[in-house]
Design a binder for these strands. Structure first.
Length: 159
DNA sequence: AGGATGATGAAG
DNA sequence: TTCATCATCCTA
């Protein structure tokens, strides 16, 4: 996951203030902010700060723990499990998340974020965020150290 | 290394 | 209205 700050973060969508697109970012925490990017993909964020403060968290990757065959159907190609959801655009396809989910409450309802049944211990590693042009080098990307399910590095970014 | 693909925000 | 930009992914 990656954090996008409410203030002073040039890479954040909220940098330009409250607009039509960023409306839910300025709303209550625990809600989904889903945006359309590069004409093809959608990305899921969780609003993470109180109303009026647009800080959020971009979910870049996850480890599938259920519904793997459904995910494979949505992302054809005979992919390995670790390739199904190893990127922000990939995981929304695999999970069927679209802009219809923009603004939904993630604490109730069909799309929810829950505490895992078995809480495993893991180390969290902080790195630079991926795929952005501004505010690079800030350690705002957080990965489970050594996870095979982490998002891959964006490799085709020109200078 | 390049292309697919369209919404967004700012400028005019 | 036009234009550059874009928190991506895939194929080569």
């Amino acid at each position: 996951m990656e954090a996008y700050l409410g203030r002073g973060d040039r890479a954040a969508h909220a940098w330009h203030g409250l607009t039509e697109r960023t409306r839910v970012l300025f709303g209550a925490p625990g809600h989904a902010y889903v945006y359309f990017i590069y004409g093809m993909y959608e990305c899921l964020n969780v609003v993470a700060e109180p109303e009026g403060s647009p800080g959020c968290v971009l979910i870049r990757a996850l480890e599938p723990v259920a519904g793997v065959s459904l995910m494979r159907r949505r992302r054809p190609g005979g992919l390995r499990v670790e390739d199904l959801t190893s990127g922000p655009g990939k995981l929304t396809i695999a999970m069927g998340i679209t802009r219809r989910h923009n603004g939904v409450d993630l604490t109730h309802g069909p799309l929810t974020i829950r505490r895992p049944e078995d809480e495993e211990r893991f180390e969290i590693e902080a790195t630079s965020r991926i795929g952005i042009r501004h505010s690079t080098h800030r350690p705002l990307r957080f990965v489970i150290a050594g996870s095979r399910f982490a998002s891959r590095i964006a490799y085709n970014r020109l200078g």
